[in-house]
Design a protein around this nucleic acid. Structure first.
Length: 546
RNA sequence: GAGCCGGUAGCUCAGCUGGUAGAGCAACGGACUUUUAAUCCGUAGGUCCUGGGUUCGAUCCCCAGCCGGCUCACCA
């Protein structure tokens, strides 16, 4: 086709040998792999692979016994140094380390390299007179990105860096594709790593997260932090005698949030199924069943837009506690976030995109109606639906026709109040129209006992005193259906099974949902939800999918 | 969905009033036995996002499209 001939290639030859290289034909290339990807860089690495095999070096090893990870190796040397345990040449014990080659500085008859493992990096020093002609010559077949294992004593170079003097090395895995690695230097003043022309294209970074992780250590740190956050959330609840449970992702009926679902189809049952948009209705069934405290950390799926704070699949923590009301849950959320901030970052305050955020309880509390009334300049309760629709038209300039009062209030709140809520702030007591699963407020039937927590202008948690009156719940569902018929496509369907559960009797219960990705964003100081999800949802690359 | 900005070598980016492209790093060959953004000499590497149009001639100008980023809207 377009690829008619391969240009002549220069290939490294074994030092002092007369090894005839394979011609750069396709014969060595497994069919399919890399086909059509005939860049010079890739072909060069393929040929090194062939040459390695010709020299009897297996490019993909099965195993390597290392004595320590890199960081421990360095620490061990320093201990030996302080303890006066080095030999007369200043050498420590022999170690075996393994990692990916991240830099290489050849000097003719010697070479320096750094390898990186899951913990850190360490410098290697290769010398011709240590390794011998053959093994030193074979180093020519290594590339940045290769995984190697090295054995030898530790010493300190003239510039003071603890280094492995390689007496033997082995190739653990050949890299056939160059990593998009920039050059790095370490600022001698601050000790900080400065990366020059690194891997920056955001789309490629998300798409090829493996390369992003391989090349950007700070990305690995974000996901380590994420794991600490999730572990801390679980520990907090486990300590309080909560039971971790798993409820269905595939559901015959969806509910628990106002969102459009994904649908799928089960072949054997020949039925439509929805991917869950929330865990809520199943977890409350468990409360009915007598599991007093339950929680679930799970993926939810919402078939809606994608932006910096929304990914179609995202991680939600929901927890429910019998006999608690929303006030009690508020205190619990405060304590939980304080604890998570401490566990994940070591402090109660974090800097998020230049703003200091303090998770020290108590958080501010404001009333939904007061805040929105102030923003509108009128008491909300005095405004008709038509008034609200008029204001919504002005403020959000959107198709507001067909929206019920609840949605209008929510739109206005989102447009006028939300983004100003920077410090952790509980917004409490939402109008009943926008909270179909929350109990009526004990002092004001126009409101529900509900709070949302906002941090940095974004919703982080949503909670209420759970509605446990099956008759009221049925009426709320029917109102949702009415709204759906009026054109709102994010309303709840009636869930008869859930109502049946309510009828058996649900104790008073407090429930909370926390967006885990958004929490990680805050604690890791990441501007986009895609930065805290390893493989965010993307349009498929050309040639993939539909 | 709207506005703005962008898509050029593996990576990061230049590219003037239109004359079919450059740099640094990476790669390849050579020199160099304590370097660390190693250094020095040399070489190779391009569907300038795609398709039209204008023009003798388009990476550049025009139109359409695709993809991405940012802002806004949407997403309780």
């Amino acid at each position: 086709m377009s690829r008619d001939q391969s240009p002549e290639l220069t290939v490294p030859t074994p030092r002092g040998g007369s090894n005839p290289m394979t011609t750069p034909s396709d014969t060595a290339a497994p069919a399919g792999a890399g086909e059509g990807d005939d860049s010079q860089l890739l072909r060069t690495r393929r040929q090194k692979l062939d040459t390695l095999r010709e020299r009897g070096i297996e490019p993909f090893a099965y195993h390597f016994d290392r004595t320590h990870p890199t960081t421990e190796t360095l620490a061990a040397f320093e201990r030996a140094e302080e303890g006066g345990e080095l030999d007369e040449e200043g050498r420590g014990e022999s170690v075996r380390v393994a990692g990916r080659i991240v830099s290489w500085r050849g000097h003719g008859r010697s070479a320096f390299a750094h390898i990186e493992d899951g913990y850190g990096r360490i410098q290697l020093y290769f010398r011709l007179n240590v390794l011998g002609d053959e093994r030193f010559g074979d180093l020519d077949l290594l590339d940045l990105g290769d995984w190697v294992g090295v054995e030898g004593p530790l010493f300190r170079t003239r510039t003071g860096e603890v280094t492995v003097l390689a007496q033997e090395w082995s190739l653990l895995s050949k890299s056939l594709r160059p990593l998009p690695r920039g050059k790095e230097e370490v600022d001698p003043e601050t000790g900080e790593r400065v990366v020059h022309s690194g891997f920056a294209d955001v789309q490629s970074r998300y798409r090829q997260r493996y390369a992003d992780l391989a090349v950007n250590p700070e990305v690995r740190d974000v996901f380590r932090l994420r794991a600490r956050v999730v572990r801390s959330l679980r520990a907090f609840l486990d300590e309080r005698d909560y039971l971790e449970v798993e409820t269905p992702i595939l559901q015959p009926l969806y509910g628990g949030a106002a969102a459009r679902p994904f649908t799928t189809h089960h072949n054997a049952l020949d039925m439509k199924l929805y991917l869950r948009i929330a865990d809520e209705l199943y977890l409350k069934r468990l409360i009915v069943g007598g599991l007093e405290r339950v929680y679930e950390v799970s993926k939810d799926f919402r078939n809606e837009g994608i932006d910096r704070s929304h990914n179609p699949e995202f991680t939600m923590l929901e927890f429910y506690q019998a006999f608690a009301d929303y006030r009690e849950m508020m205190s619990l959320v405060e304590a939980m976030l304080e604890g998570v901030a401490l566990d994940a970052t070591g402090g109660r305050q974090v800097s998020y995109q230049g703003t200091r955020i303090d998770f020290t309880p108590p958080f501010q509390r404001v009333s939904f109606v007061d805040e929105l009334s102030r923003a509108l300049g009128r008491d909300l309760h005095d405004m008709t639906d038509a008034d609200l629709r008029e204001r919504a038209k002005q403020e959000v300039d959107d198709q507001v026709e067909g929206m019920g009062r609840g949605r209008l209030l929510d739109k206005l709140f989102g447009a006028l109040v939300e983004s100003d809520l920077r410090a952790p702030t509980f917004v409490v007591d939402y109008p009943v129209e926008l909270s179909p699963l929350a109990k009526l407020h004990r002092d004001d039937p126009r409101l529900t006992e509900r709070f949302e927590l906002f941090v940095a202008g974004r919703e982080l948690a949503n909670a209420f005193s759970e509605l446990n009156d099956p008759l009221d719940q049925r009426a709320r569902f029917l109102e949702q259906v009415r709204l759906r018929d009026a054109g709102d496509d994010e309303t709840h369907p009636v869930d008869e099974d859930y109502l049946r559960a309510m009828e058996y009797g649900m104790p008073p219960t407090g429930g909370v949902g926390i967006g885990v990705d958004r929490l990680v964003m805050l604690l890791a100081d990441q501007p986009s939800i895609r930065d805290v999800i390893l493989f965010p949802t993307l349009r498929p690359e050309e040639g993939e999918g539909g």
